[in-house]
Write a protein that binds this DNA or RNA. Structure first.
Lengths: 94, 94
DNA sequence: ATCTTATTTCGGTGTTTGGCGAACTAGCGA
DNA sequence: TCGCTAGTTCGCCAAACACCGAAATAAGAT
C-alpha cells in the first residue's frame, strides 16, 4: 500500500494510469505521449509495476501494459479508511 | 489535487492523517507520537495544510490541527476516476 | 547469423525531499 | 518587563528521485 501511494505521488505516473484506463498500451505507445526519454518512462513503468497498479505482458517484441484494477480497489478503500472517521475496517487479519 | 497526491505519498503524513481522523490534535500532541524532531513534523504539517487535507487553528499558544474532509472527498473521487470512468465502455451507438 | 525494432538496464547528473538543530516568533502569566 | 512554553522558520546535509544518453537485452525478420 505504501508503494501504491508513492506511485500515485508523481503526476507523470498518474497520467500513465489515465491513459491505461482507456485501453492497454505498449511501452512505446505510452512513451510517445510524453516529452520524456523512453528510459525515463521505463523507470515509471517499473515503479507502477512494483506498486501493483499495472501489469505487463510481453507480446513478441513489444510489452503491453494494462491496469490492475484490484490494486485500485485497495487504494480506494485506503482513502476511504482515511475518510470514514472512527469506523475501523474489520477484515485483514494479521 | 496534485498537491494532495504528493501529500499522501509520505507514510509519516498518512499516519498524521489517521491520528487526526480520531480527534483534533495540537502540533505538540502529534509530534509526541513520532520519533522525529518537531521542526520535521512542522514541515509535514505545512505540506498537509497546503494540500488542503488539514486545517489549523490557533488557540492561545497552541495550534490545533484537524482534518479537512472535503479535500478527502476530492482525493476519493480522483481515485474513483482512475478506477471506474472509462475502461470497458461499450459506448452506445447514436 | 545479422539486422532491426522495442524496451530495459546502467551510470551519471541536477533537483527535491526528509531529516536535524539552532534561531526566531507568538502568546501567556508573573 | 522577563521568562516560559508551543510552534515555526532557517540553513544545512544526505538520501531519494526524475531525468538523460548510451549500452545491453529480447525477439522477430531477412
Amino acid at each position: 500500500m505504501n508503494e501504491v501511494f508513492r506511485a500515485l505521488g508523481d503526476p507523470t505516473r498518474r497520467e500513465i494510469l489515465t491513459l491505461l484506463k482507456r485501453r492497454d498500451m505498449t511501452a512505446g505507445e505510452l512513451a510517445e505521449r510524453f516529452p520524456l526519454a523512453k528510459s525515463t518512462l521505463s523507470g515509471h513503468f517499473n515503479v507502477l509495476r512494483h506498486s501493483g497498479l499495472i501489469v505487463s505482458e510481453r507480446h513478441g517484441t513489444t510489452i503491453v501494459y494494462s491496469l490492475n484494477l484490484s490494486a485500485f480497489e485497495e487504494a480506494l478503500s485506503a482513502v476511504m479508511d482515511l475518510l470514514h472517521a472512527g469506523r475501523p475496517r474489520p477484515e485483514r487479519k494479521r
